[in-house]
Design a binder for these strands. Structure first.
Lengths: 134, 134
DNA sequence: TTATCTGCAAAATGTTTGCATGCAC
DNA sequence: GTGCATGCAAACATTTTGCAGATAA
């Protein structure tokens, strides 16, 4: 699964648990949330291990990291290639968007500028329908 | 200038200096860099004041903040509305992009999802022409 | 067997805050 | 004169790291 072994990494129970938590959640969880989930079955795991595993998976391009300076980073274990998101400033929820034309067009522009493109961030911040009501 | 006074804020030398540093730099400086610049003329200013001023200007929609979790946030005092950027992972340089059609289209999509839109982030990460050579 | 991984605690980083003093108005 | 702003240092939040013991291969 995901080829940790194939790439020379050891397949530890902790890594499997973090990976499962990431793949099973559609909510773009933070390390804190992954930690809480994983601890249900691995009470002895440490946050440091979660941080390290997430970093490893990021290097393997198996998760996508969304950085937030004021708050915790969030992780997408379901779609590791960069893609657009809707981020609610009220409740912190994050949902995926499908905008393939946008991504394609944007990518072309960046490359035309002479950049070797490594990734992108196409995120929209606002209030989700639920949070608008308050 | 910029109407700090008009909005009920006091016009202090520190605030003016930070504002000037922001408007004069096209490099999307960090607080650290603004601090270094401002200190040339105000040796007694503190970093806390720069942080507080930048926060104030952000609330006034006079600067745009670009968050980076691993590194310092960067600030654009020349164009406060959200707009696309090219960010070099090698040297950290940031340059503005003009993609009005992209922004318009993207905005429509987000609003169609029922969001009250507050801002967005359309950034591209890669290696600039200079850094590609290394 | 052995190099990698883990848990723990401490450190590092960027940012925010409390408080006494200073200054814009 | 009054209250907002500043400087300083301490507090904060998140993430990273050093190290000794554990474990996958």
């Amino acid at each position: 699964m995901v080829g940790l072994r194939a790439k020379g990494y050891r397949l530890t129970p902790q890594r499997l648990a973090v990976l499962r938590a990431l793949v099973e959640s559609p909510h773009h969880p933070s390390v804190e949330q992954i930690y809480g989930q994983v601890r249900l079955e691995h009470p002895m795991i440490s946050q440091a291990t979660v941080y390290r595993t997430v970093e490893t998976l990021k290097e393997m391009t198996e998760v996508l990291e969304l950085e937030f300076s004021g708050a915790s980073n969030r992780y997408d274990g379901r779609r590791a290639e960069p893609h657009p998101h809707l981020v609610c400033r009220g409740c912190g929820s994050i949902q995926d968007l499908e905008l393939p034309a946008l991504v394609r067009e944007a990518t072309e522009v960046a490359e035309r500028a002479g950049y070797e493109l490594l990734g992108h961030r196409l995120d929209f911040y606002g209030l989700c329908p639920r949070c608008r009501g308050r």
